[in-house]
Amino acid sequence: MLSLNLLKVRLFWRALRAKSERLKAYYLAQKAILATNVMEAPLLAIDLEMTGLDAQFDQILSIGIVPIENGRLILSKAEHKLVKIEGSVGQSAAIHGILDHHLDGAVSPEVAMAWFADKCHGQILVAHHSPLDLAFLQKGLSVHFHQTVKLMAIDTLGLEKRRLMRQHEVLKEGALRLGASRERYGLPVYAAHNALIDAIACGELLLAQISAIGQGDKVSVAEVLS
């Protein structure tokens, strides 16, 4: 866990180096949220579907987002965007279930990134296994802002891992997957999967995790940010 001040400095530094006002404002807004209680902070649970796991070569297929305000997932503001890709979804369709023809109404990656940059402004991202998702988003946003962009997120997988380790549990294969983690909190099993549902599932998991960590006490954003 990174200390609050260290995080603040880092964000301040990033803001200084930001070329566009928009990006600068983004970093500063994040900095302002760090000390707040997670249950009160503006969060944005996200999930991506990709053609593969390598941000260098693979592409984003879809993005699901759901904002969390005052500890509640706001479904009316939840969104799901399909993104056009070059070439075919190929073998990856077996994992995410998105076929080429599903992408007929999809938006271009440029439009998708502009949309996402807009949506994540002033919000702290939440994702399950966030490094992977962030890598793809950073790549896309860097193109959008013409500058390297660094993102931060609350990683529900990371939180879960730390919690289990602290309890000295032996981690079984797959124990940290989204579904398995949710099960430990008694959260319902969602049969269907897409980027949006997984984003919702991830958001709900975070709420459960924060309740478990805090035991009713306040937990600040900085404490759970990876």
Partner: peptide, 15 residues
């Protein structure tokens, strides 16, 4: 109706 819902989590810890 479903679209207008918001989702919350309530922990025993808060009674």
């Amino acid at each position: 109706c479903c679209k207008s819902l918001s989702v919350g989590y309530y922990s025993k810890a808060s009674t």
